[in-house]
Simulated assay, not measured.
Amino acid sequence: MSVQTTERVGLQNAQQLRTKTLPSWSPWAVAAAALVVSFVLVYLTSWGGAVLTGVVAAVLFVVFLGIAATIVEGSRSARNRMATTLIYGAFLLALAPLISVAWTLISKGTTRLDGNFFGTSMNNIGAFDEKGGAYHAIIGTLEQAGIATLITVPLGILGAIYIVEYGRGFLANAIRFFVDVMTGIPSIVSGLFILSFWVFTVTPLFNNGQARYSGFAAALSLSVLMLPTVVRSTEEMLRLVPSALREGAYALGVARWKTIVSIVLPTAGPGIVTGVMLAVARAAGETAPVLLVAGGLNSINFNVFSGNQSSLSLFVFEQAGVASKFAPGRAWTAALTLVVLVLVLTVAAKLLARRNKLAR
């Protein structure tokens, strides 16, 4: 008798746990209904265009789905569905500008994807000449960003190691404070600093009293912008390394510097690479420092230590202001080239860091 009572109670509880749910196709049906209502209320009445129609349809979709879920599933499940919908909507809203930028670059940047663009410069190219390319700007970007990376990465990593592993007290706090301050420095300020210090003060000492603009000066100004990003990202990655790894090495008698080199840095390596590539991407896209201290040049200059030099970002800026119907195509193609160049470098660095991690 007790067994039958227990089975009956369990069956009743199981029936109470079963609730009605909306079918899997209901969100699509609600979306279609919201789109139709928004189209009738907004577009057909000339109250707004396609963008406003989409916004109103999104709002109506959340409202209609909440009402339907409340009627069928209950208020608690309805709140869960609405929160999930809002999260997905926020993701799509954040993704929309990125997709728009990528689509614009690809659609407009393919007009000059030819050998002439990548193999020639703008030397002796007039406003009515459809030829001319960004070979000189590509060379300038690679040299300037490469030298800035060689200067910044060792300094940034060593600074982060000192803050995390060795720094205590006032000095470490002061370094961290000034790094945070440098993070918000405008690019024009770093260009002015290198212009006054390096171009107008240091180079005249080695150039018969004459100031010398160069791509190396642009690399120095870019390194000023890259340094705080590298330091902060490396610092955060080093702090994520478990203390147990350090303590285990110390217990085995391994010196601190060797623990950092052989355990801490390899463990934080992928994150450090990501921070470095973020800094490189910012440096490659800066225009004001290059314009101030490198001056820009329409011809090819491989000597990064002497003479004016251009970059892809400066090339885009110059071509966007040229009164020629062929200039916008060159500007868009240069912008696409810059994005692809940064993407290739980032993917290559990620693959290299992953390969080293697997090798260990």
Score class of each variant (00 low, 15 high):
residue 102 A to Y: 11
residue 334 A to Q: 04
residue 303 N to Q: 12
residue 58 A to D: 02
residue 8 R to E: 05
residue 200 F to H: 03
residue 87 I to M: 12
residue 303 N to I: 13
residue 134 A to Y: 03
residue 356 N to G: 14
residue 307 G to M: 01
residue 6 T to R: 13
residue 360 R to H: 14
residue 201 T to K: 09
residue 340 V to P: 02
residue 194 I to S: 00
residue 273 V to E: 04
residue 183 T to K: 09
residue 257 W to A: 09
residue 276 V to F: 13
residue 98 L to K: 13
residue 174 A to I: 10
residue 268 A to Y: 11
residue 267 T to K: 09
residue 241 V to H: 06
residue 57 A to G: 12
residue 132 G to Y: 07
residue 325 K to G: 05
residue 311 S to G: 05
residue 172 A to R: 15
residue 217 A to D: 00
residue 136 H to I: 01
residue 95 L to P: 08
residue 264 V to K: 05
residue 50 A to V: 11
residue 8 R to C: 02
residue 14 A to Y: 10
residue 267 T to R: 09
residue 228 P to M: 14
residue 207 N to E: 00
residue 270 P to R: 05
residue 315 F to Y: 11
residue 187 S to M: 04
residue 42 V to F: 06
residue 114 D to G: 07
residue 44 L to W: 11
residue 358 L to I: 15
residue 310 S to H: 03
residue 282 R to F: 09
residue 115 G to P: 11
residue 38 S to A: 15
residue 19 T to I: 10
residue 181 V to C: 10
residue 317 F to H: 01
residue 318 E to L: 11
residue 278 L to F: 10
residue 183 T to H: 06
residue 154 P to K: 13
residue 321 G to Q: 09
residue 20 K to I: 10
residue 240 L to A: 14
residue 109 G to H: 04
residue 8 R to I: 09
residue 282 R to H: 12
residue 27 P to F: 12
residue 297 L to A: 00
residue 308 N to V: 01
residue 294 A to R: 00
residue 266 P to Q: 05
residue 306 S to E: 14
residue 86 L to R: 09
residue 155 L to F: 11
residue 218 A to P: 02
residue 31 A to E: 07
residue 162 Y to R: 06
residue 310 S to Q: 07
residue 295 G to I: 00
residue 44 L to F: 10
residue 127 A to G: 02
residue 283 A to W: 03
residue 353 A to E: 09
residue 305 F to A: 11
residue 212 R to L: 08
residue 129 D to V: 04
residue 161 I to V: 14
residue 222 L to R: 00
residue 345 L to R: 02
residue 218 A to N: 01
residue 170 F to G: 09
residue 307 G to D: 03
residue 10 G to H: 12
residue 210 Q to H: 15
residue 227 L to A: 10
residue 22 L to G: 09
residue 316 V to A: 05
residue 245 L to N: 08
residue 118 F to N: 02
residue 99 I to L: 15
residue 26 S to E: 10
residue 139 I to V: 14
residue 325 K to I: 15
residue 22 L to M: 08
residue 54 G to S: 14
residue 211 A to Q: 10
residue 54 G to A: 12
residue 204 P to V: 12
residue 307 G to V: 00
residue 289 P to F: 06
residue 14 A to R: 13
residue 359 A to Y: 08
residue 170 F to K: 15
residue 264 V to F: 03
residue 169 G to R: 09
residue 332 W to I: 02
residue 65 L to Y: 15
residue 117 F to W: 03
residue 266 P to H: 06
residue 40 V to P: 00
residue 308 N to H: 02
residue 325 K to A: 08
residue 102 A to S: 15
residue 276 V to E: 04
residue 89 G to V: 08
residue 213 Y to Q: 04
residue 308 N to E: 00
residue 111 T to V: 15
residue 82 M to E: 05
residue 5 T to C: 04
residue 146 G to Q: 04
residue 44 L to D: 08
residue 37 V to Y: 06
residue 341 L to E: 03
residue 54 G to C: 02
residue 355 R to P: 08
residue 47 W to I: 14
residue 50 A to G: 05
residue 276 V to L: 13
residue 65 L to R: 02
residue 122 M to Y: 02
residue 248 G to T: 08
residue 76 R to T: 08
residue 343 L to Y: 06
residue 254 V to Y: 08
residue 299 S to H: 03
residue 91 F to V: 14
residue 240 L to D: 10
residue 52 L to Q: 13
residue 37 V to K: 04
residue 319 Q to L: 09
residue 250 Y to C: 07
residue 357 K to D: 07
residue 343 L to I: 03
residue 276 V to N: 03
residue 218 A to K: 03
residue 155 L to H: 06
residue 111 T to F: 11
residue 34 A to C: 01
residue 235 E to W: 07
residue 74 G to I: 07
